[in-house]
Design a protein around this nucleic acid. Sequence first.
RNA 1: GCGCCCGUAGCUCAGCGGAUAGAGCAAUUGACUACGGAUCAAUAGGCCGGGGGUUCAAAUCCCUCCGGGCGCACCA
Length: 553
Amino acid sequence: MNPADLSQSILSIAVAAVERRGVTGVTLTVDDVLLERPRNRDHGDWASNIAMKLAKLLGVTPRDLANELAGVIGAIAGVASVDVAGPGFINITLDAAAAGALAQTIVEAGPSYGSGTLYDGVTINLEFVSANPTGPIHIGGVRWAAVGDSLARIFRAQGGIVTREYYFNDHGAQIDRFARSLLASYLDEPAPEDGYGGEYISDIAARVLNDYPGNLSNATREQQQETFRAVGVELMFGDIKASLHAFGVVFDVYFHENELHESGAVERAIARLRDLGAIYEADGATWFRSTDYGDDKDRVVIKSDGEAGYISGDLAYYLNKRERGFERNFIMLGADHHGYVRRLMAMTKAFGDEPHVNLEILIGQMVNLVRDGNPHRMSKRAGTVVVLEDLIDAVGADAGRYALVRSSIDSQVDIDLDLWARQTSDNPVFYVQYAHARTRSVAKNAHGSGVDRSAFDPSLLAHPTESILLGVLAEFPRVVRQAAELREPHRVARYAEELAGAYHRWYDACRVTPLGEEEVTDVHRTRLWLNDATGTVLRNALELLGVSAPERM
RNA sequence: GCGCCCGUAGCUCAGCGGAUAGAGCAAUUGACUACGGAUCAAUAGGCCGGGGGUUCAAAUCCCUCCGGGCGCACCA
C-alpha cells in the first residue's frame, strides 16, 4: 500500500459520496485528496482533509462527512484503523504488512524509485552559470552551478528531455576590455582604466605567449590584441569548463553569442518583431515597443551607433532555442539581474509564446562572501575574486554543492570559506552520506552473518521506528515531484536529511544481523529489505543533488 | 518614487491553508566487552518583524507599516 494507491481509493470513495447526493458539476482529482503524514504519530500513518474540503459543497458538517467516509475507508484492504479527529481530519493507520510492502517495492524499483512522469517527453532547456570568459567563475555563479545542475537531474527524473546550456558571451565590449588587459600585462603597461586586474590576467597572458611563441613581437598592436583576445578567451573558457567539471557539472551545449551575430539571427529576430509592428525608430536608434507587452519601458535593439543593443542577442537566442525545439526554457540569474524578467517576458509574449511557461526566469538571491565575519567585496577588475576552485579546495565538491543546494534560492547565503573549511563535519551532507554508508555496512555485515533477502514478511516490520521509516520512504516520489514543480531542489536535500534521521533512529532500535549465537529469522531477512530500501532512496536522493553516495567514509 | 527577494529558537535555515511551528549547529545531561559514536536518547530555548483582513482553520493568502538585500542605461 503506497500513498498513491491510498489516495486513489479515497478519491473513489469521495466521488461516490458526491454522486450519492446528486451534486453535479464537481470534478475531483487525486490532487484534491490531500493525503499527508501527520506530524504527530498518534494521529496515524496518513491523514486526509477531504471531508473539510467537501463539506461546504455538500451542505453537511465536516465531522459528519468525515464519519461517513471513514466507515468506507476502513474497509480498504491494508487499512488497519480509521478515526475522525479535530474539525474533520480522517486519520488512517495502515496495518504493518501493507505499510511494509513498500520496502520490497523500493528495492525492486532501484534507481527508478522516486521518478515520475510530470514532464514526460517535454523538451527542457536549462541555461545557467553563463559567466563571461573574462575571468574565473566567481562564487556567485557557483550557486547556480549546484542548483541548476540539480534541477536538471530532477526534471530528468520526471521524464523531461533536458539540455544543460551555457551561454558563452563572447561578443560584447567586456571581451575587448579583457583583451586589452591581457595586452597591457604583456607590454608591462598598467591595466586599462576600464579593464581587469589581478593575478589571473598575467597568468593568462603568459599562457597565451606560451601557446603562440615568437611571432607576436613584430605584429601590430591590433594583431597582438586580437591574438590575446582569441587565445585568451579560449584559455579562460577551458579553465571555466575544468572547474565546473571538478564540481561535477557538465553542460550539454556551450552556446556562443557570436554565432547569433554572425549568422544574421539577430537581424532576423528584429525583422520578426518589425513584422509584428513592435518596432519603431526614435532618437536615431531602433526600439522594441516592449511596453505593449507588459514591460515598464521600451528597449533599444539597435543603438544609434549601429551596434546591436543588449536585448537583441536575447531575442535571437530565445528564437534559436525555440527553433531547436525546446518547449520550456529556463534562464537562471542572480538577483542583480531581476530587472530583466519583465523585458524577457514581454519578448516571449511578443513572439506569441506564453510568458512563464515557454520561458521561465529563476532568480537566485545574492551569495555574499564573508571573511572572518566581515563582508568581502568581490571584484573581477581588482582581482579579488574567490573562485570555484577555492571552494572545492576548502570543503570539497560534495560538501560545497550540498551546502549551496540545501537552502532556497530565495534566501541569501553567506559563504565564509574559513568557517566552511573548519566546519565541514557540521555540514549535514555528512549526516546523509554517513547514513548511506551505514546501510551498505549493515548489508555487508548481514550477508556475513547469513542474513539474505530470501524471505520478506512485511508484517514483521512493526516497530515504531519502522513505521516512521516506511512513512518517510513513501514520501520520496512526492518530494521529487514537488521539487520539480516548484523548481526547488532544496526540498530533496531536506528530505534526505529527514530520511537519514529516521534511518539512524531505526538502526539504533532494530538490529539486522543476529546478536551472538542468535538464530537468523525472517525478522532479520525482512529488515535487510528495509535497510536496502533506505540505502536505495538515500542514493537516489543524493544522485538528484549531484552528491556522491559513498560505500564507506 | 517604482519593482523583485527576505524577516521563524542564541546562529544557519526548513515549513507552496491544517492538529501541540521543526531540523542542524551552539548549550546542559545521559548511552559503546551490541550490525560504524560522523550515531542515538533527553533537557532548555519561539508575541513566526508590527498591525489589519479573508477562512471552519493563517508562519503560509490579501492589504498596510517597519527593517534588510538587490535592481530601475542607446553598459554588457
